[in-house]
């Protein structure tokens, strides 16, 4: 059983309704984000993420019907409804709720450009560009008949494609009901952590909520309405094996190591007294800007290191 399950009450059927979405940004973009896809479709796609010499790719399947969305992809399998998320861990399914969640809002820095007619997979489509200030940040190819996004490209600060997700198959008729998971045996409520030491805003991202995390740590969840990331803060620990040979990159005059997965970037670092993990789908220039406002990597003081070697 995973460690963070100790944070939640087993078998407590507490249903936390998802709050109404609010936004202050581009209305047309917000409409797209809040659900432009049809009620029924099945799609298979590929997602590729590249940052410098790092690249990762995976396939994913999405089935939507009767208000349920079943997704199987690089982040695992989960079924989502408007009220609940059910995730798979090994052979088990478990429902997850957060004790509190701030309403979604879209940053005013994003603006949706006008559509441009195009074709994709033999289907009439519209190409949209989402601008981040003056920079093109996302390119979208949206199927005209169904409004399903066929291609999504996230661009970095220099206009290079950072992540691309493309459907390679789309079926909006005769959609089979997703294979429903067995009733979730566990219902978990992630507790809110009232003591939030991490910044309220980072590089245009707002700290939405702070939760208790595994090992007595804290999860700060940040979002700008388009991208999101979590910063996990815990007592200083060892560097996870996967980061020891990971690619180094510079930010704010210091060095970090990153792990790129198809739909996430992970960064781990140790400050003198704390360890941090940042995970999210934000593009590299946003990530580097966010790191600049977080506690910096550093070594423990000499005497503290000696003390810990002697006395633990």
């Amino acid at each position: 059983m995973r460690a963070w399950r100790i944070l939640v009450a087993a078998a407590v059927l507490l249903v936390v309704p998802v709050p109404a979405f609010a936004h202050a940004g581009d209305d047309r973009l917000a409409d797209h984000l809040e659900g432009s896809a049809p009620d029924e479709f099945h799609g298979s796609g590929v997602v590729v993420c590249t940052w410098g010499t790092d690249a990762a790719t995976a396939t994913y399947d999405v089935t939507r019907r009767d208000g349920m969305t079943m997704t199987s992809g690089p982040t695992g399998e989960f079924m989502a409804t408007a009220a609940q998320t059910v995730m798979r861990a090994g052979d088990e399914w478990y429902a997850v709720d957060f004790a509190d969640r701030s309403p979604w809002s879209l940053s005013t820095r994003y603006r949706l450009g006008p559509p441009e007619a195009t074709m994709h997979m033999g289907r009439a489509a519209d190409l949209y560009v989402v601008f981040d200030g003056d920079l093109p940040r996302v390119r979208l190819v949206v199927d005209r008949a169904t409004t399903v996004p066929l291609v999504t490209e996230v661009l970095d600060g220099e206009g290079r494609v950072f992540r691309m997700a493309a459907l390679i198959d789309l079926d909006e008729s005769d959609v089979a009901m997703p294979a429903a998971p067995e009733p979730a045996r566990m219902h978990m409520v992630v507790s809110t952590d009232p003591v939030a030491s991490l910044p309220e805003s980072l590089a245009g991202y707002r700290r939405m909520d702070t939760y208790m995390a595994a090992g007595g740590g804290v999860q700060a969840y940040y979002s700008d309405g388009l991208f999101s990331f979590s910063v996990f803060e815990a007592g200083r620990g060892a560097t996870p094996e996967v980061f020891r040979s990971a690619t180094a990159f510079g930010a704010s005059g210091t060095w970090y190591r990153r792990v790129v997965t198809p739909d996430r970037v992970w960064v781990h670092w140790n400050a003198p007294d704390r360890s941090y993990v940042l995970v999210g789908d934000l593009p590299p220039d946003h990530l580097i800007a966010a790191l600049e406002d977080l506690p910096q990597p550093g070594q423990r003081a000499l005497l503290i290191r000696m003390w810990r070697r002697l006395f633990g």
Binding site: F21, L33, G35, A37, R64, W104, V138, P149, G225, L226
Partner: peptide, 10 residues
């Protein structure tokens, strides 16, 4: 939350 994953439909 809505977000970039919305554009993949999930």
């Amino acid at each position: 939350d809505p977000g970039i994953a919305t554009f993949r439909g999930d």
